[in-house]
Nucleic acid binder design. Structure first.
Lengths: 241, 241
DNA sequence: TATCATTTGTCCGTATGTATT
DNA sequence: CAATACATACGGACAAATGAT
């Protein structure tokens, strides 16, 4: 049983252990300030060698999740996972207000492109229609919590990108176009591994998991306003319906 | 560049490649019957050796996602991902009807236990109150799509487990207790790697991703009926709000 | 029928990372 | 900080099946 096998499923044992401990932390079984079990105990629990556990703990320490003190033990440093509420009136900034002191949204650039099938379908446009595509990154208390790509009809929102960079809020930009209110028409939620670019800007270890939300917002008349593809680090965010 | 480096971040290259190709498939870029690019092309695309690509393809073939034919190429076998609608009236069987010909829910056992903080909080009971806990597995066309754990107040539903095994439907069991209708009060969605037990019963490769939903259903008076923790294979299911 | 380019399947070996003892 | 065993990743060479010329 406790033989060896090195890898087997393509995921190193030290990473599986790190993921399991992180799950205990973000899942609430361990809260900020708690002392982790001893390395020997964890080695027993995961049927692994203490060296392997140490490798896992070193990774978590690098991520800033735990913190080891010689002679005392290893302690939970940050445990909080943000909850992003999703409903008919879904607003990113309002949803996270109160959970983070500082919420910053930055633009990673934008461009004009022609709508592919998916975008055209979501925005109710012809395939190939001109759309604005903006890439964004949001940070809560300096920690990246969302990497999003948003498409909008260029004819309706020709200067979306410029105004977004200035106002930092979709709600505010819509208001500047005379749209006082908007609603969430649909949200599709899936999950996958972060790709290289996402891992980089979200400060995730390679192989980390992102929650993916595909959302369509509509104006009060029911016309599609925006199609947004958002990626949330699963270890830092959960979605609440 | 194309040096080597074996693993990076604890995730094997062949696994990253498999995940990327699977994403193209479940994401719709490749549909059933499509031929994948040649192994040589994929090796170039991922800056990997052909052997490494072959390892990834072998894994996908084992999962039943692709199918290789000597001399012809490798083809997409199954591309479909089920959509599970979540809303005020969320019903598992109704939600998936039409997407799968055969929907089977089996019980993996049940027991009486004392409510921990989380369960007591969700069901509005005292900590330590007696609750029924049932473990279930659902299959759509013989493919596992959900592994769920459900807690209910023992005083209100003393024989829940027995009736569930017989009726296979939560809605039917509630009806048998005189509850004609119920509604979804809240759903929390998160994501993580499958643990060993989940990987086994859901037929997932180690390291696969599950979407986790924590749901509370309430009766028409707003009293909590059940607290359910469901795990969906991310590669086979998405949640639609 | 025969040949050829293409593509997957199998075998050899070497170097490095992972995990235990 | 060893020594050891296994998994990962690469490189090359050739066999086997396919489809078209």
């Amino acid at each position: 049983m406790t033989k060896t096998t090195a890898l087997q499923g393509g995921v190193a044992l030290w990473r599986q252990i790190a993921d399991a401990i992180r799950l205990d932390i973000v899942g609430g079984k361990l809260v900020t300030g708690d002392r982790l079990p001893t390395e020997a105990f964890l080695a027993e629990r995961f049927s692994a060698n203490r060296h392997t556990v140490r490798r896992a703990l070193a990774t978590l320490a690098e991520e800033g999740v735990v913190h080891a003190e010689q002679g005392r033990g290893t302690f939970v440093r940050s445990a909080r996972r943000l909850s992003y509420p999703i409903g008919k009136r879904t607003r990113f900034r309002e949803g996270l207000r109160g959970q983070a002191a500082n919420l910053v949204s930055t633009s990673l650039g934008d461009r004009l492109e022609n709508a592919n099938t998916r975008v055209a379908d979501a925005l109710d446009l012809r395939i190939g229609a001109k759309v604005v595509r903006t890439e964004g990154l949001s940070l809560a208390d300096a920690v990246p919590v969302s990497r999003s790509t948003t498409w909008l009809d260029y004819r309706r929102f020709p200067d979306f990108a410029g105004r977004m960079a200035e106002m930092q809020s979709i709600t505010a930009v819509f208001a500047s176009y005379g749209i006082a209110d908007y609603a969430r028409a649909s949200t599709r939620i899936s999950s996958r591994h972060a790709d290289a670019e996402e891992a980089k800007v979200l400060h995730l270890a390679p192989g980390a998991i992102v929650l993916v939300s595909e959302a369509v917002d509509v104006d009060p008349e029911g016309r599609p306003l925006s199609y947004a593809l958002s990626r949330f680090p699963a270890e830092r965010m959960e979605l609440v319906v």
